[in-house]
Structure formats: structure tokens, C-alpha cells
């Protein structure tokens, strides 16, 4: 599903190489975790895949279902089925959460040549999905992420993901700022979306999120490269010994 080959990325504004040859393949139905110390390039990878400005790809490729992602605008990547759950979801005062969600859902449907959802169908779908994430109607009415707690913001990200039904979901440090209960709720939301047609890339600093969202493969990233890949036991190794051993071992 998601195939990244030899991806090299530098900052656009300065001569600083962030990713130095990433190779990664997430097959259909699998959950891959990327762990690594601060500054290893995890978030950069998520931004480059979703098309944020400020980065320059100097080498390599990234494909979603065989389609080259890197030439597409961010909204085209979304329509192609890519979704990024932000580490810091953005507050948009004055734009209702519902309005935003509906605009996004219908923009994607339109881009894919599908019919737009009617107001009634949309409302029904949102209410059902919001309920499982314990998002009340008051939160749906409020401006996007304004006045939301950290946990509410992350739940709102998962609600967007559930409504947009992407093929490939990237979760960027979704566990940051969450207490145990919120992490459970968010994880349940993610797990409900797992399926044979969908892939996940879960970026996290800590192992604890992976207790709830069980990965098939764990990659350790350091200094712009994936230095080690393995099963879920790799995450436990990090938890026990820290990154030092693994990174040192490879170097």
C-alpha cells in the first residue's frame, strides 16, 4: 500500500538533510510503528508524506497504491487516501467543527468523482461515529479544536479519520498529551478502523501507545534512517533499555 524508497529530504530554507534514505513498506492491513528519539526525523517523514511546505525531496520516492505521492498537492494526497493525525491539531476559530468535517468529506468525495453526502446522511454518520469516541454534540458545534482539551483534540482527529475513511493513516505522536483514559479512547477509535484494506503508520516516542494499538512491525529511526525493524518485541526492548543500545548496536 505505502511504499517509500530511498527517501532523502532536506529543509527547503537551509542546507540541512533530515531524512537520509528511508525505505519502508506498509502492506494492506498492517500497522507499522516508527519509534525513535527526538530529532530522528519521524515527524518530518509524516509531513513530507502529507505534503507540507518547507521540505525538499532530493532523492527517492513515496507511493500510495502505486501512485506517486510526492508530486501531489496535500488535498490530492488526502483524496488519494492519505490521512495524517496531527501531533498538534490546529485551532480554527469561527469555523464550526461540523462545517469543516462536511466540507472535507465532500471535497474528497468530489475529487474522487463520488456523489456528495446529503446533510442528513452526513449528520447521521457523524453522530454515530462521534458517539463511540465520546464526542458530544456540543463539541461538534464548536469551532474546530477551539477550547478543546488535549484529549478532545486527539479524539477529534480520530473522528475526522473515521469520517474520511482513508486507506493509509499516519498518526504523529497521537499519544502526546493524553492521559490513560484518553489514550484508551483514542486507541479504541483507531483499532475500530483497522481492517484488511487499510494501513497504519504510528509514530510515537513511547511504547505505551503500542500496548493499545498493537503493531505488526516496529521500526526504529535515528538520524534520518531506519536503523532497525522487528516485531512488537522491539518496542518493549526500547521501553526497557532506551534507544541508546539499539542505535549504538547499529552504529
Amino acid at each position: 500500500m505505502l511504499k517509500i524508497e530511498n527517501l532523502h529530504v532536506k529543509l527547503e530554507e537551509e542546507d540541512k538533510q533530515i531524512l537520509k534514505g528511508i525505505d519502508l513498506h506498509v502492506p494492506y492491513g498492517e500497522v507499522h510503528a516508527i519509534m525513535g528519539p527526538n530529532g530522528s526525523g519521524k515527524s518530518t517523514l509524516s509531513y513530507v508524506l502529507s505534503g507540507r511546505d518547507g521540505y525538499e525531496v532530493t532523492e527517492g520516492s513515496a507511493q500510495l497504491e502505486g501512485e506517486d505521492l510526492l508530486d501531489l498537492e496535500p488535498e490530492e494526497r488526502a483524496a488519494a487516501g492519505l490521512f495524517l493525525a496531527f501531533q498538534y491539531p490546529v485551532e480554527i476559530p469561527g469555523v464550526g467543527n461540523m462545517t469543516f468535517l462536511r466540507t472535507a468529506v465532500n471535497a474528497q468525495r468530489k475529487a474522487r468523482g463520488e456523489e456528495e453526502l446529503s446533510a442528513g446522511d452526513f449528520l447521521k454518520a457523524v453522530r454515530a461515529k462521534a458517539k463511540t469516541l465520546k464526542i458530544d454534540s456540543e463539541m461538534l458545534k464548536r469551532p474546530v479544536n477551539v477550547g478543546f482539551s488535549g484529549g478532545e483534540k486527539k479524539r477529534n482527529e480520530i473522528l475526522q479519520m473515521a469520517m474520511l475513511e482513508p486507506k493509509m493513516c499516519i498518526l504523529d505522536e497521537t499519544d502526546s498529551g493524553l492521559d490513560v483514559d484518553a489514550m484508551k479512547l483514542v486507541s479504541e477509535g483507531v483499532n475500530a478502523l483497522r481492517g484488511p484494506d487499510r494501513g497504519f503508520l504510528v509514530i510515537t516516542h513511547y511504547q505505551r501507545l503500542l500496548d493499545h494499538i498493537k503493531p505488526d512491525v516496529v521500526h526504529i529511526m535515528a538520524n534520518g534512517r531506519i536503523v532497525k525493524s522487528g516485531g512488537p518485541e522491539l518496542a518493549l526492548e526500547v521501553e526497557t533499555n532506551g534507544y541508546g543500545d539499539i542505535i549504538g548496536e547499529v552504529a
Binding site: R52, E73, F83, F86, F100, T103, A104, A107
Partner: peptide, 17 residues
């Protein structure tokens, strides 16, 4: 970028902002 990453076109996203 946040709005566009959700599939909203640049123009519509600008209008929203």
C-alpha cells in the same frame, strides 16, 4: 496545511481561514 491535509482545496481552505 491542516485544512488541505483533510482534502479541502487551497482556495476553499483560504476562504475558511
Amino acid at each position: 496545511f491542516y485544512l488541505r491535509s483533510r482534502g479541502v482545496s487551497k482556495r476553499d481552505a483560504t476562504d475558511m481561514l
